[in-house]
């Protein structure tokens, strides 16, 4: 007999700031739909947990993105994120509803909150994951839905698949942009339930004195659908690389080497210590393909790379690789694109 009879459903923590919901939450809801669909015999629901003040009207948006149900905790103490009150409220929701699993975006907020909740519940938390599957064989044998959660470690050099066999809920933080966003359906209906936490104290232990906007990036490479990536091998032809991007309606991004050499700003850096991107097209120009760079872009739908070294690592993660010199290929590419448009 299954050990976790009372535990069911996949909960997704819905992260919001000033009522704007973080896209990763919807990516997780989309993925949770696939997970529950893989084990229809369990009859699991996808449940969003939305914490904040005056956020109830956002519940329908969460449902439109694929949730069957939304648990709303609306409280003045939850207006802005605080580790203390969010951990208190979320732990109580989990204790009251007993989800089989609980997913959170691996954002700065998610990675501040989830460990605290997991420790309070004494349950396993898999960090910064990039893949989730239900172990279907195990489900058949035991009647338990066990998640195989895969994550990069050692700076993306080693992957581990982590399981939490003996505790519920199974918790994980999941990296943004690794799962596809399903289309929204505004006609979708679902249940909205309000939850009232009981506070042991309403006295905050941490005060945010001031919030300073970081100097705004002129571009947001994570939102671009087409990226042309510059590596050290394209530093001498950045102008024409920009032209390729312009012709395609795309944006220029780069490796850390290019940032270090002072050619482009840090907010254009892709990779482990830069941004994670998932455009429909990534053209890698003069990029060697170091794991730290690839970790931030290898989920792109189509990767085309140009490198003069036939052995370059970047070719291993590309859909198409071209051996060649960027400085001569890129000007020709601008013309070829113009010609293709005119056809």
């Amino acid at each position: 007999m299954a050990r976790f009879e009372e535990y069911k459903d996949i909960f997704v923590f819905v992260e919001q700031e000033n009522g704007n919901i973080a896209e990763v939450s919807y990516e997780l809801i989309s993925e949770a739909r696939k997970l529950v669909a893989s084990i229809p015999e369990f009859g699991y629901k996808v449940v969003g947990v939305l914490l904040g003040e005056n956020v109830k009207e956002k519940a329908q948006e969460v449902i439109s993105h694929g949730a069957d149900k939304v648990i709303v905790v609306d409280d003045a103490l939850l207006k802005d994120y605080s580790t203390q009150f969010y951990a208190d409220a979320l732990t109580q929701v989990v204790l009251a509803h007993k989800p089989d699993s609980m997913l959170t975006g691996a954002t700065p907020l998610g990675r501040d909150l989830a460990p605290r909740v997991a420790a309070r519940l004494n349950v396993g938390l898999t960090a910064d994951a990039t893949k989730i599957e239900v172990d279907l064989e195990y489900a058949k044998e035991t009647g338990e839905s066990l998640l195989d959660v895969t994550r990069p470690t050692f700076g993306g050099n080693l992957f581990g698949t982590i399981v939490c066999k003996d505790t519920r809920p199974q918790m994980a933080t999941i990296r943004p942009k690794v799962f596809e966003l399903a289309p929204t359906d505004t006609t979708r209906t679902g249940e909205v339930e309000e939850f009232t936490p009981s506070w042991t104290t309403t006295d905050p232990q941490v005060f945010v004195e001031k919030v300073i906007e970081k100097v705004k990036a002129d571009v947001d490479i994570t939102k671009a659908n087409i990226l042309v990536g510059a590596g050290r091998g394209a530093e001498n032809c950045l102008d024409v690389l920009q032209k390729v991007a312009d012709e395609l309606g795309g944006v220029v991004c780069c490796t850390r080497a290019v940032v270090e050499d002072g050619f482009l700003d840090k907010d254009r850096q892709v990779g482990q210590t830069g941004k994670t991107v998932r455009p429909s097209l990534y053209i890698a120009c003069g990029i060697s393909g170091a794991v730290q760079h690839c970790a931030g872009m290898d989920k792109s739908d189509l990767i085309i790379s140009i490198n003069r070294d036939p052995q370059a690592e970047i070719f291993n993660i590309s859909n198409m690789g071209f051996v060649g010199d960027c400085a001569t290929v890129l000007p020709l590419l601008v013309e070829s694109i113009k010609a293709a448009k005119a056809e």
């Binding site: 395609l248 097209l281 053209i283 085309i304 140009i306 036939p310 070719f315 291993n316 993660i317 590309s318 859909n319 198409m320 690789g321 071209f322 051996v323 060649g324 010199d325 001569t328 290929v329 020709l332 590419l333 013309e335 070829s336 694109i337 010609a339 293709a340």
Partner: peptide
Amino acid sequence: TEVFTLSEQETADMIAKTL
């Protein structure tokens, strides 16, 4: 991956064609 070693013009044309 398919890795191509072509002339520069052929490379440019093939990328544009693929896109």
